[in-house]
Each structure stands twice: as C-alpha cells, then as structure tokens.
Write a protein that binds this DNA or RNA. Sequence first.
DNA 1: TCTTGACTTACAGTTGGCTTTAAGTTGTAT
DNA 2: ATACAACTTAAAGCCAACTGTAAGTCAAGA
Lengths: 149, 149
Amino acid sequence: MFYTIGEMAQRLNVAPSTLRYYDKEGLLPFVERSSGGIRMFKDEDMEWLRMLGCLKKAGMPLKEIRSFMELSRQGDATINRRLELIEKQRQSVLEQQRQLKETLLMLDYKRWYYQTAQAAGTCAVHETMPLDQVPEQFRPLMAEWEAEK
Amino acid sequence: MFYTIGEMAQRLNVAPSTLRYYDKEGLLPFVERSSGGIRMFKDEDMEWLRMLGCLKKAGMPLKEIRSFMELSRQGDATINRRLELIEKQRQSVLEQQRQLKETLLMLDYKRWYYQTAQAAGTCAVHETMPLDQVPEQFRPLMAEWEAEK
DNA sequence: TCTTGACTTACAGTTGGCTTTAAGTTGTAT
DNA sequence: ATACAACTTAAAGCCAACTGTAAGTCAAGA
C-alpha cells in the first residue's frame, strides 16, 4: 500500500512542502519514486518519520537528523554511533527538563507576585513585604538574586 | 553604580550586540544613557533582565516580551494583563514539559533498541523479539505505533 | 593632548526551518 | 482524448533572532 506526499503529510499533520524540503535536505533517503518521479510513501516509512519527529521534538537540528538517517542506511556497522547520538540527545532532553523546571519556578513566583499585587491594587506591596510572607518555595530563588547583585 | 553594555553582557553571558538588538527592539525601555549616548546599566536593571531571560527561556517570542515590558512601564493599571500573560506562558511551559516527557520516553526506547542491537551485533534482533521481552515502560508506546499504521 | 579600546548607529548578512511561486509533468476520472 | 487535481523541481521569499561591518564618537590613562 502506497501513499502520495499529500496523504502522508495529512497523516503526519505537516505541509507537503515540509516533506519535500526534508527530502531535499536528505532526511528521507528511504522514500521511493514511481516511474514518473512521484514520491511513494510506504507504511514502513512511518517508522522513519516517527524517528524523525522524535529527534526533532528533542531539539536535534535537521543536519544532525540527516547524519542519523545516513548512518541508519549504512546498516549494522553504525549501531554504536547511532547509540551515541541517541544518548547525547537524551542528555540534552534531560538538561532541557532541568531548565524548564527552573523556568516554571520563576513563572510561579511572578504569578504569585502579580496575584498579590492584584489583590493589593499595586506592585508597591512587594517593597514593604517581609521575607516571611513570601511562600517558602520562592526563597531559594530570591537568595540567588541577592547573590547576583 | 553603573555598568557599560560590555560589562552587563559579560555578567549575563550574552554578546553586547544581543543587548543592543534587544534595546533596538524595545525590550530594554529602562536603560538610561550618559550625556554622550553611552548606555548605562544599573544594578536594578538586573531585575528586568532576569525577567526577560525567564520569559525567553519559557519560549516567549521577543515581540511579546516587548509588550510585557511596555505594560510594566505603564504601572499598576496593567497588573491584570501582565498576570494574564504570565499565566498563559506558565501553561505553555507545562505543555512543553508534557511534550518533553513523551520525547524522553521515545529516546529511552530507542536507546534500549540500540543497546540491544549492539549486544546482538545486529538490528535484526528486533524483528524476532517477542513482545514480552520489551521492557514494560515501552509497551504503551508500541501500541500507539500499531494504531498509527 | 593624544592614543586606545570600548562604545555608538545603520545596515547588511547569516542561520534554521520552512513556505511560496512559477513552470511544467503525472495520473486518474470521464 | 481531455480535463483536472495533485504531483514535480528550482529558486526566491519569509521570519525570528541574532551577528558582523563600516564609519564614526566617547572617555580614561600616559
């Protein structure tokens, strides 16, 4: 069973032009063509496209994804190098998670800040607020800011 | 105590040109100038730059950050709208966390896949692997892939 | 006063990841 | 056989977020 680029694009919820672009950039070395030159996607291509989507969501640049696809096409001899790439990207995702957690704490602080300001009708309330009225979760954050000054 | 753009850039670990770009885009309405036109950063500007960094890490585009800075300059009348912006961005971060968690599971699966293939010397080991040898954590993932076919 | 390094602006260039356009081809339905 | 939608390529365009260049100005030390 084959799919045209339009059908595959719909299935993946991307624009056909995006798939053409990926193909041009060498990210889809597995795609076959009809005698007339039309791309014919197979069901098993989904596995590659899923991999591509995963690496993209992990923040891997298209160039590196292309390297990965090239290594894959070279077969079992490149298993080690593919594993290394995966582990590197895994570390990157763990780092992103750490970073997002920090960012969320900051946003939670700002949310509290503006909720409090809203209740008081003015941001000035924070100039006179004693430290022990700041929720505990935000104290390490504020200590850090002091250090940065 | 004042800092030049170079000193501030070093302190923030960004290029001076980046700060100039931000200023040009209206993200730094708080920066004062010397009589000769040199930017003079103050210690209290750090608070704004921290806010900027936080919003940026949260994935907010520079245009929106600019709106936020403009609202801030308008004082207490805009507390509500700033709170709304913060809450919107907080939701976005929660969604990014959800997404990253999913991505990590995928990468963990691929890591296991290549570790197993490495031990066997070939990816072919996965064609004959019975489902009950796949670690449990990855089963929901594989079920999803089946459904997508 | 003069040198020197860091600053200033305006503007062009770069990178990454698409998206659009134009001109032409394929393949299915009538 | 013909029409028509969906495909093809090459090339240009677009957007965000910088980054680099050129020409000139500022300010601190010898």
